[in-house]
Amino acid sequence: MSEPSPKEQEVILEQLRAQLVKQDLMHEGDTIGTDDFTLLRFLRARGYDVKASVEMWAKCQEWRKTMDGVGIDELYTKMDAYDFPERREVFEYWPMWFHKTDKEGRPVSIQHYGAVNIPELYKHITPERFWWYVVTMAESIPREIIPTASRAAGHQVDGTFLIVDLKGYSLGQFWQMKDLVRAAFQIMQDYYPELSAKFFIINAPWSFTTIWSLLKLWLAPRTIEKMDVLGGDYQAVLLKHVDAENLPAFYGGTSCNEYLQQ
């Protein structure tokens, strides 16, 4: 289905809201979010098919209640993704952080896959706790990151601006982390849909052809459509979307090379 007009979206949105209420799948105060932006994300993920969007929402609500036997709300109170005992070591061996915003007010999310070292990571944090970190980080995006960015921008921000840096990345690293990456992509597509508005892969090595052939099997077509794969000549492309003062100097901007969320 092609993108409906704003007026058509309003009609479909109200149809979805009515169905969710009727089927007892949405209640005031639900932490999944009950605002128009959240509902529209589920609609876009399912091509504005109301029935399919209801099914997706129901599965998401069930996952939120049962995730790891405790549910996402309890887990979110147990682990602060930005402040927990192993945070510094986790950042050292799997660096990912937020750094300012793009020209549309979207939070810039950076993940440096080339620096990932799974064996060293698991010397400092258990696989279970690291997965909790991944999930609570994902949960923080619609709960905290996007609302904060939207207030700062003065309008509803439509998602994050994601940069995945593959500088120094090897096939060996990919095989070490592939199950985690696949699981992370899966929860983002199934339970946090349409949160990446822009997605750039930079410093892609020659071996990325092999990696990409596998990644495409895991990704929804809408996700693939948003992705741009760049080699080492990416600075001009990023600067089209991010003001120089908001882009770290090591990516061609003038912002300090400080990791803001380490």
Rank of each mutant, 00 (worst) to 15 (best):
W175S: 10
T160S: 12
M177F: 12
R129Y: 03
K178F: 04
V116P: 01
R143Q: 09
Q189D: 11
A184D: 05
L171H: 04
W131A: 11
S207I: 15
S150Y: 05
G168K: 11
M188I: 09
F185E: 08
A115L: 15
G159M: 05
V157C: 06
W206M: 15
M137P: 00
P147M: 15
G172E: 05
E128I: 10
V157G: 01
P142L: 00
P147S: 12
L171V: 03
D158L: 14
V116T: 08
A138Q: 11
I146N: 00
I118W: 08
I202P: 01
L171I: 12
F174T: 07
M137K: 04
T160Q: 09
S196E: 12
A115P: 01
Q186W: 06
I146M: 14
Y122G: 02
S207W: 01
R151A: 14
R151V: 14
A138R: 10
R143D: 00
Y122H: 14
G168V: 09
G168N: 10
M188Y: 11
A183R: 12
Q173G: 09
V116L: 08
V116M: 10
Y192H: 10
Q156S: 07
A197T: 03
N117R: 15
V134W: 00
M188T: 03
V134H: 04
A138I: 01
V157M: 03
H155C: 05
H155K: 15
I141V: 15
L171T: 01
Q176A: 10
I163S: 04
I202Y: 01
E194I: 08
F199T: 06
K198C: 07
K123F: 02
G172K: 10
A204Q: 10
E139C: 06
V135H: 02
D179G: 04
Y122L: 15
Y192Q: 05
I201P: 00
W132S: 09
F130Y: 15
P142G: 01
F161D: 07
W132K: 13
Y191R: 14
K167A: 13
R182P: 02
R182E: 10
D179T: 09
H124P: 04
W132R: 15
A183M: 14
I202T: 05
P119K: 12
Y192E: 08
I163T: 02
Q176D: 14
W131C: 05
